[in-house]
Design a protein around this nucleic acid. Structure first.
Lengths: 243, 243
DNA sequence: TTGCGACCTGTCAGTTGTGACAGCTTTTCT
DNA sequence: AGAAAAGCTGTCACAACTGACAGGTCGCAA
């Protein structure tokens, strides 16, 4: 990797908008000898049925629409791989020949010019999230394996940079409570999450029952939780008691 | 990246032991022109005070001991970066000159022959986890920046492979409950985590109060939780209601 | 020194969750 | 057909939590 290319990667980190990230990324993708890329980020938050989705890239729009409409995410080996593994997946024809629906899917991908490439994962940047990226070009996957393998390291690194930028730009990053808990509050919440009741928590912390309830009540108030259960959930989800 | 090297990377995935992973990784690291590497994985589980740690590599043992004894993890810019970012960090002298303790730390690193290199992150593979890897060699960091940048993509990719192998070998992967919850149980737990009480949950699911309690009771039993709070915590931590 | 934030404690009425008895239907797999 | 698993429902006593009133000390920074 020469310094010139490295600087291009680094410029992703200071981009002002997703559009700019997209544009730089496409530039790199082309330098690597590919024509399209797509980035996808999904976060499931429990208070909504609909997950939060960030998606951009240079895949043909029509293909993206098809993909979503047909729920290809359920069978797409790339999507499945990215959810469960850390290392990249090099596309091979065999991957897409297991079932009729998979073959249909791959035929469509081919017709859109995204049939040869690789997928990279950002395994769960945070709880209940998953993100990944694919880069692709037209043509037969098997015939161009070597070219794909050649750029694997660059693709993986690119994915890291893009994800970092997305997290920054969309402030998706560390879900954090607006109001931090004090040490005592954290201690009480932690113990409560372990299933201890107030009396036992009081004993463990060498304070009175009333005090435990006071702290837990403050914690609830701070995290905007109506009940102890919601407090636990919020605390875990927002990493309020984390690490 | 030639096929030969790629196969070496892939062989990490089928290694039978951490020792083997370590050996192959070292081989790659040397191919990249470096002399040492270290991999670190930390998981905090709330029922223990002590976090679970996986650590291996080819850093000098004496240095690792120093590092731990001196609690360098608290000031080491590499460790900090890896916890908060996705992209690699290229070591530069400036990084280690902010404070006296930092300069002392870096002087020691230098004396152990690990003063020039880069750090790569696996950002929180799962909740409350963090992992990363560094590769290094002796000499002045600033003077060899270009060589470090040159191998960044390979280092990042290597990190992915190593982490994947670690997860597999140590079965650290997806914390999962031994006993899965049924759909109804999950629904009840999910709503409970949102702070709803049993009566409201019953209304939402169009079932009776008694039934909600029955399901929650089963869920508690399955996850081995004594209380509703612990149930929520366990369910979130083990992804029992996940995604 | 005044104020603020973390920490600690008290009482009481009312709400909610839990455990220990139960028994019922429907679907799915063998 | 028979068993197992999922889902659903009932009652009662007791344990645990919550809200709304309070009250206090200590240390630190403006």
């Amino acid at each position: 990797m020469d310094k010139r290319l490295y600087q291009l990667y680094e410029s992703i980190l200071v981009a002002d908008s997703l559009t700019e990230v997209e544009q730089i990324t496409q530039q790199i993708v082309e330098k690597l000898g590919f024509s399209h890329f797509v980035y996808l980020f999904i976060r499931h938050s429990d208070n909504k049925t609909e997950p939060q989705v960030v998606q951009f890239g240079t895949y043909p729009k029509a293909w993206i629409e098809q993909y979503i409409a047909q729920r290809y995410d359920l069978i797409d080996p790339c999507a499945l791989h990215v959810r469960n593994h850390q290392q990249p997946l090099v596309w091979l024809n065999d991957l897409f020949s297991e079932s009729a629906s998979l073959r249909r899917y791959y035929a469509q991908a081919k017709s859109f010019g995204v049939s040869c490439g690789a997928s990279f994962a950002v395994v769960r940047a945070f709880p209940k999230e998953s993100a990944g990226m694919s880069i692709a070009k037209p043509g037969d996957a098997n015939e161009q394996v070597d070219e794909v393998i050649a750029i694997l390291p660059y693709g993986q690194l690119l994915t890291c940079y893009v994800h970092e930028a997305v997290v920054r730009l969309l402030k998706l990053s560390p879900p954090q409570p607006k109001r931090a808990l004090t040490e005592r509050e954290k201690a009480c919440v932690r113990l409560a999450a372990q299933g201890l009741n107030d009396t036992v928590i009081a004993d463990k912390l060498f304070i009175h029952l009333r005090t435990v309830r006071f702290h837990l009540s403050n914690a609830r108030e701070k995290l905007g939780a109506k009940t102890r259960s919601q407090l636990i959930a919020r605390a875990l989800e927002t990493n309020a008691i984390g690490l």
